[in-house]
Amino acid sequence: MTNRTPSPRGMPLLDRGVGPLLMLPATLLVVIFLVGPFYYMVYTALTDLSFADAGQAGAFVGFDNFRKLMRNDPLFWSSFLLTLKFVVIAVAIEFLLGFALAFLIFRFVASQRLLTTLLLIPMMIAPVAVGLIWRLLLQGDFGMLTFYMRKVGLLAQNSAVLSAPDLVFPTIVAIDVWQWTPFVTLIMLAGMMSLPRAPFEAAMMDGAKPFQIFRDVMLPLLRPVIALVLLLRGIDAFKEFDKVFLMTGGGPGTLTELVSIYAYRVNFRNWDLGYGAAVTFMIYLVVLILCSVFYKAVYWSSRKPAAAF
């Protein structure tokens, strides 16, 4: 599976040792400032380090933190489940809408660079600004969207979506959909544009109906790109922090406390660093699993000539 065979053009160009040498500075930087801290975090997770309690100076406690996490922390698990719910619902909607839009553009509008680029603005600007924009739109007293939602009866007169317990979660999902649907559209459109023509022509010659062509030719050819989009979005959504933190801070109560916000609270509000490290380790674990799936499913298969992109 790994692509370790020499290139078809013969032996690689660089002398033995020169390649690794070129990679050395980059590798060193990443090891010192990302991998080092990561292992320190793993070590901290096995201690009772806390800045809030002078009695907890970082004594080794083994797996106590993880034991507590597994058995005794309903808040962690509810934030974990909330995050999974957020990822599944938001990414599913983004995918369906984004795919449909990409297909419409691909099939009937052809290349429309200006409009597709305008679509990208929500996902290119700082997530903090996105959070701020929506906070302004959804203000209880003078929010523009609040006003129109009340007008058409979507919202009660004296309530505001960001503080209404039953509305706040759907709202952050909707805002994520607003921000990231264009991402799916952009990538799917690129995938559709790079499809080979021959299979489609062959299917048409055989008299296949449009829907059959879509289902039996286009979807299978697009499978690697679909996997890629779902995984990249899934990983990113699982790490969501900035805009939700800005809009709700995890509230009201803990109704929008995603796991990264929970980790932030344990570490930088309660200063319970040992336990906080255990929490962030769990987040890292989930992302690492998704990440290796991404690599296996997408990158390796895309390097085989059979996959089409």
Partner: peptide, 11 residues
């Protein structure tokens, strides 16, 4: 891919 929050404390 590592979540920034997992590196932020040690950093």
């Amino acid at each position: 891919m590592a979540p920034p929050i997992s590196i932020a404390v040690p950093l």
